[in-house]
Design a protein around this nucleic acid. Structure first.
Lengths: 184, 184
DNA sequence: TATACTTAGTTGAAGCGTCAACCTATTCCA
DNA sequence: TGGAATAGGTTGACGCTTCAACTAAGTATA
């Protein structure tokens, strides 16, 4: 790994891999990849072992618990939990099966609300401290206050660009149909 | 059943959800969760659409391409790609099916190496630029050089703590057997 | 040299997420 | 008012990841 991507060299050697990012970026990219891969895996693993739930399920329940009436319309819940409506629908069904959440069809026809049951709330009160102790251990204990600030800022910037990328399947369909309509 | 597990207050009101993190931490946590959820989803989605491969598969191939002989022992490849050996084994099988990677059992009995084929390398040369253009758009275009530095540092710190959390299944088994042995 | 243990890797089943198709209210607009 | 378009939600199939069990090779112990 001491050669350049473009220039020609020893005929039998394979070409060096190209450098798609500069050195600073590559280094940051590797670290970021590590975090976005390892951190969810660690959280999922811990929650699964100690509480038999996935991190996504936990996030859904936390989001509900923070509402005054412990309920949220699925569409909004999906956004808060960073998941697709389809995924959420499946998850709500599973949580209903465990008695932690109920579906309640709101007054407005289509809309469906998910409601955290008392049993779900009690479960959360047990699991929450355990989980956030782990979060603290894995994330906040290793960061200074200044780094926490930087984390919020950097992640926030990345997320801003990410908003609107969600539901790409749906968007793709819409776009397809839109252009079909235009071409007819 | 509308009462509180622990604190007493206005009888009809549900208790406020507990604050497991302080305000700074909670805010940073929400942003971090957004990134670790949304960014992999966006990358996976783009790679799937434009190249029919997952981000993990892409990462495996990139890792191989960066080796002088375009090959790596599975155990090491698993670490570089941030995945379990089991996951990697399945993925290598799929990549073999597409002719992008081959397995080669090394001279040392057990060890198995994955080798990037020429076809795999050519594919990577096409997909790489497309993918990293997206990475640049989603990550580096929205960050200043200073923020990139901070990103590397913060993610690096988090990852340090995460190392050793991997292969928890295996660790759990080992621990179990160890204690079984001790107690007998 | 026999025995136990560890390490590397594979495999199949089970569970989860994505995608596409679908259904049904609601809104738009002519 | 009638129709198309859209928004909210559900469902089933398929593919991927995890987990546990397993094989087999290497290593340590006695």
């Amino acid at each position: 790994m001491k050669r350049q991507p473009i220039p020609r060299r020893d005929p039998d050697a394979k070409p060096d891999p190209p450098r798609w990012l500069n050195h600073q970026e590559w280094s940051a990219w590797l670290q970021l990849l590590g975090t976005v891969t390892l951190l969810p895996a660690a959280l999922d693993s811990q929650l699964q072992r100690e509480a038999g739930m996935s991190h996504f399920e936990f996030g859904v329940m936390v989001a509900l618990s923070r509402q005054p009436d412990r309920s949220l319309q699925l569409k909004d819940l999906a956004v808060v939990a960073n998941g697709s409506l389809s995924r959420l629908s499946h998850v709500i069904s599973r949580l209903e099966g465990r008695g932690w959440v109920r579906r309640r069809s709101g007054p407005k026809g289509r809309a469906t609300h998910a409601v955290l049951t008392d049993e779900g709330y009690r479960t959360l009160m047990v699991v929450g401290p355990i989980h956030f102790r782990e979060v603290r251990r894995l994330v906040f204990d290793v960061l200074t206050a200044e780094e926490v600030r930087a984390l919020r800022q950097v992640a926030g910037r990345i997320n801003s660009g990410l908003i609107g990328e969600l539901n790409l399947g749906t968007l793709a369909r819409q776009t397809r149909e839109r252009s079909k309509r235009q071409s007819s």
